[in-house]
Design a protein around this nucleic acid. Structure first.
Length: 113
DNA sequence: GTTTTGACTAGCA
DNA sequence: ATGCTAGCCAAAA
């Protein structure tokens, strides 16, 4: 199917992140059946910007909820601003109540194999 | 082909 | 608790 590419799998999950919620690279990696590929997930996100994807990359942070990828956005504070616009509280480059607004991506059966 | 890189994570000092 | 090291995987050079 269209998700044959690793990037497409990542994009499929990221695109499903509810507004006002966030998730981690590791969670996404696990959801697509590549729990060890958390780094590669971030790699895909960097590529997604170049591809002009409408993915909510600002909702994806590392496992502790820190905005590690903020420097990759057009503006240095763009990521945080986008999050705050959705109601996500960000403090010192870290998401407040991270565990509260954490969104666990559903593991699609198509990704299991 | 091999090497480098990176928006990660878990473990250890 | 904070900081560093090593392991991990996929794409780009």
């Amino acid at each position: 199917m269209a998700n044959s590419d690793f990037f497409e799998r990542v994009y499929s999950i990221v695109a499903k992140i509810p507004e006002g919620k966030v998730t981690s690279y590791g969670a996404i990696a696990k959801a697509i059946g590549a729990a060890k590929s958390a780094r590669t997930v971030g790699y895909a996100m960097n590529a997604c910007v170049k591809l002009d994807r409408d993915l909510p990359a600002h909702r994806v942070v590392n496992r502790i909820g820190m905005l590690t990828g903020k420097h990759h956005f057009p503006g240095q504070d763009t990521m945080q601003r986008l999050l705050e616009e959705e109601g996500v509280v960000v403090k010192d480059d870290k998401i407040k109540n991270f565990e509260k607004i954490f969104w666990q991506p559903p593991v699609n059966e198509y990704f299991e194999d």
